[in-house]
Design a protein around this nucleic acid. Structure first.
Lengths: 230, 230
DNA sequence: ACATGAATTTCGGCG
DNA sequence: CGCCGAAGTTCATGT
């Protein structure tokens, strides 16, 4: 990892064209070969970058008379021919440090995990609910969770972290298909998400689909409480 | 902008839970208050981060006996209560630098620009093609470009940077609607993108929609050539 | 390798 | 302020 704070201008030519006028910025050169250029804002997003694989080449910039201007051109290029051209006017800091390979991130709470938790605690949807199976297969793709309600009727559940119109449309297609099967009908629908957008809720309820807001911490809490009982 | 290279472990509790075991990493603290944690890989993407607005607080970590362990806890928290807890075991580098406000990025070549260029050079679609208007309004949303072909028939054009199934479906809906209007029918369809996925192409051609791959550099080149003529 | 779909998506535009 | 859709999306997964 090399960190360079420098006065620089940048041009990107590739999937689009972009230009950054001369200013002080951080240039981050990682061991994977990637280069990214950060300003002191825009949170974690760089102004410009090049992802590996790519090559890095430094050259001196000469003026019309062939005199060295003291400026450097850093040319970063990938095999597709996309280029990042960094003109370095002055370097304020330049540090290099070996970090070694990172153990990596352990995530917990994405959609797959929500589905898992809800399947384990299907009674969150109502008393006497029981799980039929996760990823219940249909001709147009798997339903996230298939369950049965207290009346022993089928309930198809679509799980999302953020529930939008798309998810409702998806569930609607499943319900339409499933309800054509006399062995299953009537199949009810539940749209379950950590966050449900108003439009999605309206559309869902309009179609007789019940909306359930999932509380991830609470679902996890149920597990913790169960554990505490032992 | 503060750059800290440190041996640290990180826990994020918020929209999901995530954990990073102890290792050497770069911690980037920007003037906007954002904090991001980078490893020496994963290109420009940080392992973990917190976007502003958020608060930063440092405290000493004590062991069970109340003895200072020498470790520090950096607690980054946003108003929603999401937390980034960084345990600092050792600091290898710590530099601080004022960068000032960035002039910002000039972009050129995104979808809006593709649409603009194609509208200006509608003959790219065929000889004698003429532009009716961009963002041609319909009840279900605007058609990117409405044109007429050499036979003076309407042609609805959907412009995408990357053409997938969705774009074809969208154009199909427009065409269905537009062709119900006797004043417009027959309306032909053109699916224009910098890159068209095979499945999208198959679907489009199956529906009688013509696929056109746009070359951004070439469209720009036309402009350059025109300029050169003057 | 390619297509599909989630992401702490982010980001910007428009209403 | 919230919805909607693009993004140099990126990233992981399944086929």
């Amino acid at each position: 990892m090399r960190l360079v704070i420098a006065q620089c201008s940048v041009d990107y030519v590739g999937r689009l064209d972009a230009h950054l006028p001369m200013a002080d910025r951080l240039i981050l050169i990682k061991a994977d070969g990637s280069v990214s250029i950060h300003a002191d804002d825009r949170a974690y997003k760089p102004l410009n970058w090049m992802t590996p694989p790519c090559t890095f080449e430094e050259s001196a910039i000469e003026d019309i008379d062939g005199e060295d201007t003291g400026e450097k051109l850093w040319l970063v290029e990938n095999p597709k021919g996309e280029q990042l051209r960094i003109t370095i006017a002055a370097i304020h800091q330049d540090i290099d440090m070996e970090l070694g390979e990172d153990p990596g991130l352990v995530k917990d709470g994405v959609e797959a995990h929500l589905q898992e938790l809800l399947a384990e605690h299907i009674e969150t949807l109502g008393e006497k609910y029981s799980l039929v199976r996760r990823e219940y297969p249909t001709a147009i793709g798997p339903v996230d969770i298939m369950a049965k309600n207290a009346e022993n009727e089928f309930v198809a559940v679509e799980v999302k972290r953020r529930g939008g119109i798309d998810g409702v449309e998806q569930l609607t297609r499943y319900l339409e298909l499933l309800n054509r099967d006399d062995l299953l009908a009537p199949v009810h629908g539940v749209f379950a998400a950590q966050e449900i957008k108003p439009q999605a809720r309206t559309l869902a309820e309009d179609r007789g689909i019940r909306c359930v807001v999932l509380d991830y911490q609470e679902l996890r809490g149920i597990e913790s409480n169960e554990l505490r009982l032992f």
